[in-house]
């Protein structure tokens, strides 16, 4: 594992802040989302405007119930807003049906889950291949695994991998399709600090080297310092947008 960090990541170098391009990859306007829970309406989003630019690294911060998961679900094409508009490339996500959302996820989005969600009956390589088989212009599973530094362990099953390794396989799986947007939902939530840092380094490097637009949602404020933009949410609204002057390297972050 250490060989990977030294060989592939220029750990000592200060990371340059990525410069966001002007064209948004994704545009969301006046998003609201209401869940009907019995006789009560729960407003998860109360009017959110949100643009996502190419190559940008965004951290979405907020406590439980702030609406960040709902926003991620809408950005990821898992859900549609109650009102408002979302566009990504040629997709209008606000009016998409199930098939349209599926093809949007398939073509444009890479997901990284808190609990990895690897298929236990498939090896690391096969978990990645699962996605490359249905993508149009994927990298090879081996290449994706090399990027996350798991080329050596590609024939291992999830039960034979540590949590950090499993999460890196999940990242390889997410990036193998060369997605426009990489959505990471609490990617370090189930990991200890050391392993978490390692995972964040991989995500940061992918954002930097592959220029994949990346959104990390977390309630861990420390992670915010590696972002181009930090969006804080509370009560279904965006409460602040900050641009850290310097993007920090994950290994310099402490929490």
């Amino acid at each position: 594992m250490m060989s990977f960090t030294t060989a592939r990541l220029d750990a000592g170098a200060e990371l340059k802040t990525s410069i966001a391009a002007d064209v948004p990859v994704l545009q969301a306007q006046a998003l609201t989302k209401v869940y009907h829970m019995g006789e009560v309406d729960v407003w998860a989003l109360r009017g959110v405007d949100f643009d996502l630019f190419e190559g940008e690294f965004i951290v979405l911060l907020g406590p439980s119930g702030s609406g960040k998961s709902t926003l991620l679900n809408i950005l990821g094409g898992l859900d549609v807003p109650t009102t408002g508009k979302v566009h990504c490339r040629d997709h209008d996500l606000s009016v998409a049906d199930d098939d349209a959302l599926t093809s949007y996820r398939r073509e444009h989005v890479g997901f990284v889950f808190q609990f990895y969600n690897l298929v236990p009956s498939l090896t690391a390589r096969e978990n990645v291949a699962l996605v490359t088989e249905i993508s149009e212009n994927p990298m090879s599973p081996d290449e994706a695994l090399d990027i996350v530094g798991l080329g050596e362990r590609k024939n291992h099953f999830p039960s034979q991998l540590s949590g950090g390794e499993q999460q890196r396989v999940a990242i390889a799986r997410a990036i193998s399709k060369r997605p426009d947007i990489l959505l990471c939902d609490e990617p370090t939530g189930a990991l200890d600090v050391t392993t978490g840092v390692l995972v964040l380094e991989v995500i940061a490097r992918i954002n930097r080297e592959l220029r994949t637009t990346t959104v990390v949602i977390t309630h861990n404020a420390a992670i915010a310092s590696m972002a181009d933009r930090v969006i804080s949410m509370s009560g279904g609204l965006i409460t602040s947008v900050q641009r850290p002057p310097v993007r920090m390297s994950p290994r310099d972050i402490h929490w």
């Binding site: 990821g76 898992l78 098939d99 599926t102 093809s103 996820r105 398939r106 073509e107 989005v109 997901f111 889950f113 969600n117 298929v119 236990p120 699962l130 996605v131 249905i134 993508s135 799986r173 399709k177």
Partner: peptide
């Protein structure tokens, strides 16, 4: 697993 695959873009 199946829901994960759906999220990953399987129909």
């Amino acid at each position: 697993d199946l829901a994960t695959l759906r999220v990953l873009g399987f129909n």
